[in-house]
């Protein structure tokens, strides 16, 4: 696996790798992915993919069972809160674009 491929996949997965880790993980990923390529031996042209373990369909919610949590419980495990304890506080979002919401980003000039 090429170095930039390992870096790319680590970036997609949001995992920071040291120089040494890039080498060791790179070699390990190569061997694991290489083993997985064994699947290419099989002809599966007419086979339907099977993403689910059982053939269940239409599992609608019929018995609502989640009352909202008290806010204290909802925020209890947060690494950081705002001073009034109402929001999750996260590192300042600058310029990183949410695919879903322009409002989350900031305009540059």
């Amino acid at each position: 696996m090429k170095r930039e491929d390992v870096e790319h996949v680590a970036h997609l997965a949001r995992i920071q790798l040291s120089e040494e880790e890039l080498q060791t993980f790179g070699a390990q990923l190569e061997s694991i992915l290489g083993y997985m390529e064994k699947l290419g031996e099989l002809n599966t042209d007419d086979v339907e993919p099977m993403p689910y373990a059982v053939d269940v369909k239409n599992a609608y919610r019929d018995n609502p069972d989640h009352s909202p949590l008290p806010r204290d419980a909802a925020l209890k495990n947060a690494p950081q809160l705002d001073p009034e304890g109402k929001f999750f506080a996260v590192p300042k979002v600058i310029g990183e674009i949410s695919p879903n919401q322009g409002k989350s980003g900031e305009a540059g000039s």
Binding site: L39, G40, T44, V47, E48, P49, M50
Partner: peptide
Amino acid sequence: YYLKALKVRRK
């Protein structure tokens, strides 16, 4: 990878 594996899974 993924799609192929889902097909072999059915086999």
